[in-house]
Write a protein that binds this DNA or RNA. Structure first.
Lengths: 163, 163
DNA sequence: GTACGTGCAAAGCCTTTGCCGTATA
DNA sequence: TATACGGCAAAGGCTTTGCACGTAC
């Protein structure tokens, strides 16, 4: 079966090579927002010859063609996700680094209006919320943390301060 | 006269050294969102002995104590601004890289509610709009571009694509 | 006087790039 | 076959760090 990304690549006129196909599939199946390293690791399991440089080149290419979108989500490394039909926003759990997506169509419309008020046409929009879970049900259950990525983005808004 | 940052440093119990005072003043007077390089350049005019490493260390320290906030605003380099009383958002001109700030209290409240709906307490919030100016009044007035920073963040959401 | 801060230079992390052989359309 | 692509390793940009000296409290 052919992924949506692969179809888009064909339409644009990109050569469909092994590495691109692999990366396209990984991205299609990803539920989270993989960074380049994760993509490379996964691609590497499909074909050990795929290099990190190729992953970088490919995501860049895909991004330039509007197939992918780059996110920061509080960390220094770029994370990628497929461009969707509509914008969606991200809520980052400051403890685990886990990312929750949510829609908020009204907000998008509102932001478009805000931009217009300042004389701008809105081209894209990033909304990132950072928060901590309310009422953790038990004690230090750190073992529950997601294996996907170490909390690289916890330092983002350290309101804790002093010491 | 003593800046707000300097006062905060004292309260927290940080030693007020020359470099810190210089950086605090620069930040207090900044209307834009300087990056580390700009801070260093400015600090350097106040005291040529101030090193880049110190600027990095200082903004990091200030950020950790909640005095400063780090922004990306579509570029790879971090930009800093003083933490305000309330959140405000940023509208980035994709052509010039210029940043406009705006308030939108309703949105902040809305986002707090969204976070709560997902079981999170909102700790901080980043909203960045990227757009292009509507109806530029004349021709290519590139000379009007701000001298502050080259458009480092134009690549952020290249919807232009192909070629 | 002591613990903390600073300058300098080296290292680190993430990302891009040059070169050249390889594979796609 | 011509062109675009991929692997490798080196370079690049931004940021952090080790060390020895200096300085605020």
């Amino acid at each position: 079966m052919e992924t949506r990304i692969e179809r888009l690549c064909m339409e644009i006129g990109l050569k469909m090579t092994g590495p691109r196909r692999a990366i396209a599939r990984i991205l299609s199946e990803a539920n989270d927002h993989p960074d380049v390293d994760e993509l490379h690791r996964l691609a590497h399991t499909l074909d050990p010859r795929i290099s990190l440089a190729t992953v970088y080149r490919t995501v860049r290419l895909f991004e330039q063609h509007g197939i992918l979108e780059r996110r920061n989500l509080g960390s220094r490394r770029a994370r990628y996700e497929m461009s969707g039909d509509r914008d969606h926003f991200h809520l980052v759990d400051q403890e685990s680094g886990k990312v929750i997506e949510f829609d908020e169509p009204e907000t998008e419309i509102l932001m478009r209006r805000v931009a217009a008020r300042h004389g701008f046409e809105l081209m894209s929009l990033k909304i990132e919320l950072f928060g901590r879970k309310l009422r953790a049900e038990a004690g230090p259950l750190d073992a529950t943390a997601p294996a996907t990525s170490p909390p690289d983005n916890m330092r983002t808004a350290a309101k804790s301060a002093a010491e």
